[in-house]
Amino acid sequence: LLFLRSWSTRARISGKSQLLFALVFTTRYLDLFTSFISLYNTSMKLIYIACSYATVYLIYMKFKATYDGNHDTFRVEFLIVPVGGLSFLVNHDFSPLEILWTFSIYLESVAILPQLFMISKTGEAETITTHYLFFLGLYRALYLVNWIWRYYFEGFFDLIAVVAGVVQTVLYCDFFYLYVTKVLKGKKLSLPA
C-alpha cells in the first residue's frame, strides 16, 4: 500500500514514522546473524528490513518533491532518547544484542506517533493511508490474542513484548474508532477543526 501511495502525489505518509520502523527492524533482526528459527522467520525478517528501507528511500529520495515535510514535524528524539534509556534499564539480559532487541520492541510501540501527529496536524488522511494504519495496528493487536494462546498452551510469556504490544495497540485504538465509524462507512477520514 505504501509503495502504491508513494507513486502518487501528496502522500501524507510520515517519513519520520517510516524511518523509525526501519530502525525498529534493523535493531530487532540482528539475531539473523546469531540464531535460526525457520525459513519463514528468516525470510520475513529480510522482507521487513528491505521494505522498510525501500519505503524510506521512496519518501526521502525518489519522491522527495511530494513529501509533506511541513506537516511531519514530530520530534523523534523525544521518542528515541527515553526509549533508549528504558531499554538499558528494563531488559531480559544486559547484553548488546538483547538491549537492541528491547529498544526495537519499545520503539515499535511508539513509532506510529509521528504519523498520528501528522494526521492530527493536517486534520485528514487519505483513505489508503487509513487502510495502511488499520492493518499495521491490527498486526500487533492480533499478537495479543496469540500471546494469550501461547501462555495457556505453551507456557510462553514475554512481559516486555506483551506490555509494549498493549501500549502499541492502545495508541491505535483512537484511530481504530475513527476507521470503523468513518472510513468503513465510505467517508474520508477528516478530523473536526
Binding site: 530487532r28 540482528l30 539475531d31 544484542l97 532487541w101 513484548a161
Partner: peptide, 10 residues
Amino acid sequence: FQKGLKHDEL
C-alpha cells in the same frame, strides 16, 4: 558480538 536471547516472534 554477544548473543541475545532466542526470540521467535517477528
